[in-house]
Every structure is written in structure tokens, then in C-alpha cells.
Simulated scan of single mutants.
Amino acid sequence: MSKIVRFHATGGPEVLTLDDVEVREPGQGEIRIRTRALGLNRADAMLRSGHLMELPSGIGWEASGEVDAIGPGVEGFTVGDAVSLIPSFRATDYPIHGELAIAPATAVVKHPDTLSWEEAAALWGQYLTAYGALIETAALKAGDTLLVPAASSSVGLAAIQIARSVGARPVALTRTSAKRQQLLDAGAEAVIATTEEDVVTRVNELTDGQGARVIFDPVGGPALARLIGAAAPGGTVIVYGALSTEATTLPVLAVIGKSLTIRGYKVFDLTTDVERRKVAVDWILDGVARKVLRPVIDTVFPLEDIVGAHRRLESGSQVGKIVVTVRR
């Protein structure tokens, strides 16, 4: 029997339990992993608090660990290999948070031994999201100004690192000044506290009135109009989340007047495409090898405190990734 994170009713972090479950053998095209660390994502909280057709349910997209068993038709892996997981599957089909996890082999990658288990569990979701939006979609390049709302999230920090790696200028957006120094230390060229400063005015000051060519927004809501006001003519606004619970109003005349591209983005479009995913994985591994990309971990919790880890996730006070370790 293995301890698996599940919930028997939807709700807050307190609904999570550690259940003793018999984990099956891997089937065709599958790998079983003995986990060492689990990475938390905002999507985990959305799944846990949403409405499911079938309960109890498992949870989780990201983990690192060792190959425990290999199913038929799988090549390129050996029992004992150090691996981590790319979010490219439905967590309700392959819930991976627990001591043992079954995953499709297409989602399993070997990670460099320069990364700890915690860093490996924090790697793929954030960097693939930022890479796909910024490099593949927006073609971010040297000299570009990039606006990063919710910059203290793991994806926001990955975006700052990726921008720096190509010579772009990342400007971090955060609600208050409380995280200003941490974001500057993380590589932001400037930090705008959105409840204390006018975003459009500050961006114009930072860009000599040119505006930001790329905006990478996970929030939506009323703030999107201000971001569009700060965009450069011909710029690209990528929306990859809807953290705001308020309605999003699009200032159409500003979009037309600036000839903006507004693009919806989800990482699964990248991670479920074999060829695109390979290019992205190689690009990120190269960045890790050159030490220009490195996961920022906010807090590490033991598996036994999975509820506390989810509470930290929902607090909004973190800077970086929340990781859960699995003791052996």
C-alpha cells in the first residue's frame, strides 16, 4: 500500500487526505514512479475546489522521483532512472501526488543530476509555460520589454529568467511593495506595485514612452485594460490564466489603435505536441546547464503536511514554487 493524496469532497485545503492505496502495475505506454518530491500548481487548488463527476479523486501534475516499474511498449528508461514529469495529461486520469505514481511515458523525462529532487519537481510546469508563451509564441528577443503580472509566482519568476536569458528587459508587476526586493533579486529590471503606482505611467517612464512589446498575463479582469494601455504599438498580450474573479473588459479602440495581438495560451498545446515539446525541453535543459535557468523554491513541506502546503499555495504570499517532499 502507498500513501496517495486524495480528496473525498471538494473544498479548501482541509479536504485533502493521505489514503493508503494499492497502486497498480503500469500498463501499455506507462511508467510507475516512486516519488521523491511533488510540485504544486494553482491548477491543483482549482481541481480540488471544483466540481467533479467522480469522487474520491487524486490530484497533481508535477513530481520527481525514480522509475519503479516500466509498462509494455516503453523504451529508453531503466528502473532506478531519476525522472521528472511534464504536465501533459489530465490529473483526474493520472493523479501523481503520492508515494507512487503512474504516468504516461510521454510525460516522463530524465532530468540533469545538477538538480535536487525538489528543483526537478519544480522545473517543467513553470518553464514550459513561460517558454511556450514567450519564446515560441511571442518571439521575445533582446531589447524587448516584458511585463510580468503576478511576478512572484513560479511561472512569473521563470518568465523573468527566460527574458534575461535572451537579453529582454523583464518588468515585474506585484500588488504591493512587499516583494519588491525579492523580485529585483530574482532578476527583474524594475518592479511596479500595482496598488501603489500607475502602471501605464511607470511603463512609459521605463521605456521612454515606447511601451512593452510583450505582456504575459495570468490574471485578466479589470487590470487587463491597464496592461493594454502600457503595451507598445504592434505588441503582443498573452493571457494564460484568469485569476481575477471580476469581469474582463477589452478596450477595443486601444487594441485597434495599437494594432495589438491578444493571444490566449495554455501549456497543454505545447506539451501534448511531441515535436514542439522536444524543442522546448531541450531549450530549457540548455538553460539549466548554462545556469541561466534555476527553479526558485518558496517553501518545502513534508507529504504529511499536504494540507499546509495547499494553504501556503492559496495564501498568495509565496515567492516561487511550493514543493512537497516524500520521505524514504
Rank of each mutant, 00 (worst) to 15 (best):
A37F: 01
K258F: 11
A120K: 01
V219L: 11
G143I: 08
L52P: 04
G287A: 04
A280F: 08
V324M: 12
S57F: 02
V292F: 07
V203F: 08
V166M: 09
E75Q: 09
D298C: 08
G308V: 10
A101W: 11
I86P: 09
L243P: 01
P95L: 00
E118V: 14
L157A: 04
T78A: 14
K110F: 11
I284S: 05
I33Y: 09
G71L: 11
F77L: 03
L313F: 12
Y127D: 02
A230Q: 01
T174R: 08
I306C: 03
G11F: 07
E25I: 07
Q28M: 06
S64D: 02
G29A: 10
A280P: 01
E196A: 11
G287R: 00
V148E: 04
I322M: 07
T248M: 08
V279A: 02
L38F: 05
V15W: 09
G234R: 03
E275A: 15
W283Y: 11
G220W: 13
I96Q: 02
G76N: 06
E197K: 05
G50D: 14
S259A: 01
P170Q: 12
G316I: 15
G132Y: 01
K321A: 13
L285D: 11
I228L: 13
A309N: 10
F216Q: 02
L52T: 10
W124Q: 04
L18F: 07
D273A: 06
A130E: 02
V296W: 01
V323F: 13
S153L: 06
P95I: 06
H51D: 11
A37T: 07
L40H: 02
G132L: 04
T207E: 13
T35K: 06
A230F: 08
S88R: 02
